[in-house]
Structure formats: C-alpha cells, structure tokens
Design a protein around this nucleic acid. Structure first.
Lengths: 338, 338
DNA sequence: GTCTGGCACTCGCGTGCGAAGAGTGCCAGA
DNA sequence: TCTGGCACTCTTCGCACGCGAGTGCCAGAC
C-alpha cells in the first residue's frame, strides 16, 4: 500500500502536469508544493509510484507524467468534485433560462458546457423511453394515409406516416384520437403498451386493422431508441490538445462524427453521479488519450439522457466534473419547468 | 491581356499545386505538362503572372503558388465542372434513397458530401420560406392553451405553443382547424398571409382574439428564418489541411460552430449553379485560407435551401464543384419523391 | 520579337556537432 | 527513514555548413 505522502506526491504530480502540460520533476514539485521533504525523498517516492504504474517518464531523463492508472487513482481517491461558485451557478441558470424550445435548450447546454470546460461537449437529446406522453395526434393526409404525431413532456415531437390497410373514416379517426389520448396522455412510455392493447376491440371489424397499424407504429416510435440524437460543440477546443496534432486530433474528430460511438460512450456511464472514463478505459481506440466525463440528467428524479465532455486525459478533473454536474442539474430544472 | 500560353501555365500551376501541395517551379512544370516551351520561357510567364497578382512565391527562392486571384481566374475561365462518373452517380443515388425521413436525408447528404469531396460538408435543412404547407394541426392542451403544429411538404414539422386570450371551445377549434386547412393546405408559405387575413371575421366575437393569436403565431412560424438549421460533417478532413495546424484549423472549427456565420456563407451564393467563394472573398476572417463551394437545392424547380463544402483554397475545384452539383441534384429528386 | 540555354545568385532546409540544462539514480551519512 | 551530494543520461537549442531547388537576367538563335 502506498503511504500517505506518496499519494500526496501523486496528487501534486497530476495537478502540476495538468497545469503546465510538461513532465514534472522532483525539484519543481518540492518548490511548488510544500511537502516538507527534500527532492531526493520525492525521487524515491516517484520511483515507487513508477514501479506501481501510476506514473511514467516519456524519456529517460525527463520528469514524470501520470498514467491512466494514475489519473484513475487521482479521480477516485485524491480529488473531489470542485463545486461551481455562486456566480458561476447564476450564470449557468441565466443562460439556460433564455431557451425558447427543446432544440434551444440542448444547443445552449452544449455551448455552455464547451465554454465552461473548454473542451468538447456532447449532449444527448432527452430520451423518449423514460418520458411521458403529453399528447398523441392523428391527421388524415389521405383516405388511407394517416400521420401520427407524438408530443412528449420534454417538448419533443415525433411524427410517423401510417399507411392504413383500409380507408378510415373521419368519425373513426376522431374516436380513435379521443380514446388514445384519454388512455395514454400523461402516462410513461413504458406503460403505454399495456394500456392500449385492447383498443382494437372497441372498434368495428373494418377499422380494426387500421387501429392495430396505428398502435404498432406508436409503440415502435416509443421504443425506437436508435433515433436518439446528439448535439456536439466546442470542437475548436481540440486544438488546445498538444502540438502533435494530426495524430491526436484526427481520430477524435472521426469518433465524434459517429453517433453510435458517442452514444456508447455516454451510455456506458451507469452509476448515478458523475462518471469518468480515462484513456484506455474507453473501448474505442482513437480515444485512447482522451477522457470522457459524463452524467445523466432529467426533469424528474430519474435520468432521461446523458451529457458530458470529451477532453485529453490531461484535464482538470475536479473542475470538469463540477461543471458537468452543475450543468446537468440546471438543465434538469429547466426541463421540469417547461 | 494574358496570352493563351500564360493561362495554360497558370492552369498547370494550379493543378500541380493542388496535387502536390508544394510550390511548383518552372522546371517541374515543363516536365509534367508538355507545354512545348523551355523552363526559361515559363519563368518569364511566371514573372508576368506574378506581376498581375495571380501567383506568388512564399519565399524568395521557392516555386510559385496561386493566389486567391489566381484561383478565381482558374475557376472562372480555365476549368469547368468535372462531372461525376456513372458509377459515382449511381452510388450517390443508392445511398440517398435509403433515407427514412428528413433528418436522415440531411444526415446522409452531409456524410456523402464529406466523403466525396474529402472536405467539410454543410447542409442546410430545407427552408420553410419557399416550401408549401401540407397540413396545419391544432391541439387543445388546456382550455386556453393550444399547440400549433405545422407540417411542410419537405416533411418538416414545427410546433408552437399558443396562449389564448380566452377559453376556446372544442367546436370552435374544429371549425378553425377545418377552415385553416382548406385555405392553406398545399399553398406556398408566401401566399398564406393573404389567404388567412379575413379568417377572424368568420368567428364569433368571443373567439376572434384567439383566432388572431393563432394566425399570428402561424405567420411568425412561417417567416421565422433564423430557425434555419444546419448539419455539418467531415470535420476530421480538416486535419488534411497542412502541417501548420492550430493556426489554420482552429478558426475554421470556430466558424463552423457559428450557425450564423455558416448560414451567411451559404446564403451569399446568389447565382443559380454552383457558387465558389475563394479565400478572402469570404467576409469572415478565419476563413481567409478556405474556400466555400455551395449550391442551392430543392424539390421542385426552385431552390429551398443550400448545401456546400468548406475546404482549403488549395482544393480540387472542378471535382468538388461536380460532386456538390451532383449531390444537390439527387437530394432534390429524393425530396420531390417523398 | 520571341524563345532558349547558360550562369550566377539567393535562400530554405536538413545535418552534425557541442554546450547547456534538467532530471534521475545511487550512495553514504545523519 | 530522510537528506545532500555527485556522476550520468538525454533532450533541446543554437549554430555553421553544404546541398539543392529555383529564380532573374543576359546574350544569342530562330
């Protein structure tokens, strides 16, 4: 087990390296943090930390830099989450409150996160699966062609075309519309299937086919998770990475264009609270030198989607985690109000 | 006026520079293109071209590279648009035909453009202003709170909340819904205002306030051009730019995050046909070493939105213009079919 | 007049060398 | 167990040098 002082040394190394972006040596460490011991002692500690795999030296005669394992220990044990200051919190709230609709909320959130963390921000649109239905609308576009519009409590609107097996009268349509809404309005998506399964029985034989078609389209829409959309921003911050650009930045930009990859990245976060994935902990290669800080957010107690940032492993974890957490909290509030 | 051969020299310089990314000298030129004259002659021509401002040399003893003015001449007079090959056209068509809805069409278009041109692709969602109305729906969310849903012929859906000055009965609502649709369904946005202006008169005094409110919300939605959305993709291609990275790539990434800037960029294109803006011709600084190739596209004869690519001034103009034109054409077809 | 070949000149770029500096590892002593 | 000292290793930076590409100009040929 590592002694208390060695953990302090590791913490100091991480902090200095994040600040300076340069390998940190024993002498500089003792000067900047008063550890109460001499550089020689720190050197011994560093050798031990290196043996354990927490730090490494890029070249034989250079300072040390933290490894992924080192950052992991730092995040788990050595550093907390740095809370936002009151003015920062106010600024976040003000900025988000100016949003006029769901798209705007998401857009503002991305922007805010990118600015606060100076990194790449990723925000998932509030997911359908955990939301509730606000309203279902049916429109006749043609005698045997309907449009189904689903409005959720998060303000999201989904529309689907429905081709009916048989013409469907205006009165039947109104009937179906009314019955559907009285059953599902205000209900959670997960509950909808059992609430509507017996609906076709209330209609005449001629109309049952159409009703069933409409219902199955509705259910499809509800479970259609692959439609989950994302918005990203702050990619310009990638240029702050290092100076060995093309190699570092390219795979990241490529990964960011793959929605699937991003969703997986955010989705992996399971715990409540802020999740941090460091370097190689991200399955996707190309993100091997980046970390992802993510958290769920939602209007009620439960998370309806995730948001987070992507940045170099060498990032200010406490600050980033604080910003991500705070933004998630306020976005949740905004969604709950609207 | 420049002689025919000098124009050929300029064309050769542009082609070589685009290919090699290195300043091109007189000797290399005569070797790669059989101009029928000696390097010395070419040198004289180059000196003349430089006097006129079409080419420049980065260092005293280096080859020449085209200036913005040189590219402009090249695009206008020396090169045409390189048509796509038949297999390429088929591939475009196949790829776009797989789209399931409007979002998907736009997403696929962005992807396609980015891959074809190996540059950053920008696609504007089909604009509302030139579209026609497919359907208008009104839903009562509360006694004095309505939701207005507008469905366009391009498949786009816009929704707005309407707070009514007075409660609005279900029968009045149905009446308004029916009257509204009979008047505006299938009509162009531009025609809607005059078609509905006398609608309030058909209602009882109590309801007129609400009808007016609904109508003005509808008209607002129709003209709301700042809601025009964009999708971009292929930013990873920026890493192919040069090796002097941060300076080149950063401002471009920043500009790409500003919807306003992008819309202006695309919007400036006035002519029918492909528009090319080279380097400093783009008002936005930071895009001084990039060119924008854009074109309008639409489902009918008229353009409803624009798409284009952003890349280094040193780009393959004929090929890029060909790709942009072809993609725009097929997207138009897809939109017309759906 | 226009084109050509030759020639001197200019620079940028890559290479090699040496000095400087930072950092380490180890060891003996407190 | 900590500390100071010392020798060693490597990277980095500056500098000089030579090479090569490319130019500009000029005199002569068609």
């Amino acid at each position: 087990m590592l002694s208390e002082r060695r953990l302090q040394v590791l913490r100091a190394i991480v902090q200095d390296y994040v600040g300076t972006e340069e390998p940190v040596g024993s002498k500089a460490l003792t000067e900047r943090h008063n550890l109460g011991v001499s550089p020689a002692t720190v050197r011994n500690d560093m050798a031990a930390l290196e043996d354990e795999g927490f730090i490494a030296q890029p070249h034989t005669s250079a300072g040390r830099i933290p490894t992924d394992k080192g950052y992991r220990l730092f995040v788990d044990k050595l550093a907390g989450v740095k809370p936002m200051t009151a003015p920062e919190r106010r600024a976040i709230q003000n900025f988000l409150e100016g949003a006029v609709d769901l798209d705007d909320v998401v857009a503002r959130t991305v922007r805010l996160l990118a600015q606060l963390t100076r990194q790449v921000a990723v925000v998932q649109y509030p997911s359908l699966t955990r939301s509730t239905v606000r309203h279902v609308e049916l429109l006749a576009l043609a005698p045997a062609r309907l449009m189904l519009v689903l409005i959720t409590d998060t303000g999201r609107v989904e529309q689907r075309m429905v081709d009916c097996p048989a013409p469907f009268g205006e009165s039947s349509l109104a009937d179906l519309r009314a019955r559907l809404n009285s059953r599902v309005a205000g209900r959670r998506f997960a509950d909808v299937p059992s609430l509507v399964e017996d609906l076709p029985e209330a209609f005449e034989a001629d109309d049952r086919g159409t009703v069933s078609t409409v219902l199955s389209t509705l259910l499809e829409t509800l479970v259609e998770e692959n439609e989950e959309r994302l918005m990203i921003g702050g990619t310009a911050n990638l240029t702050r990475f290092g100076h060995d650009f093309p190699l570092t930045i390219r795979p990241v930009l490529e990964a960011l264009e793959e929605q699937v990859v991003l969703l997986k990245l955010l989705g992996e976060a399971k715990d409540p609270g802020v999740t941090v994935r460091i370097g190689h902990e991200n399955a996707h290669e190309g993100l091997n030198s980046t970390s992802v800080v993510s958290v769920g957010y939602g209007s009620g107690g439960e998370a309806v989607a995730k948001l987070g940032v992507v940045g170099p492993t060498r990032m200010d974890y406490p600050g980033t985690m604080g910003a991500v957490r705070a933004v998630a909290r306020y976005v949740g509030q905004i969604l709950a109000e609207s």
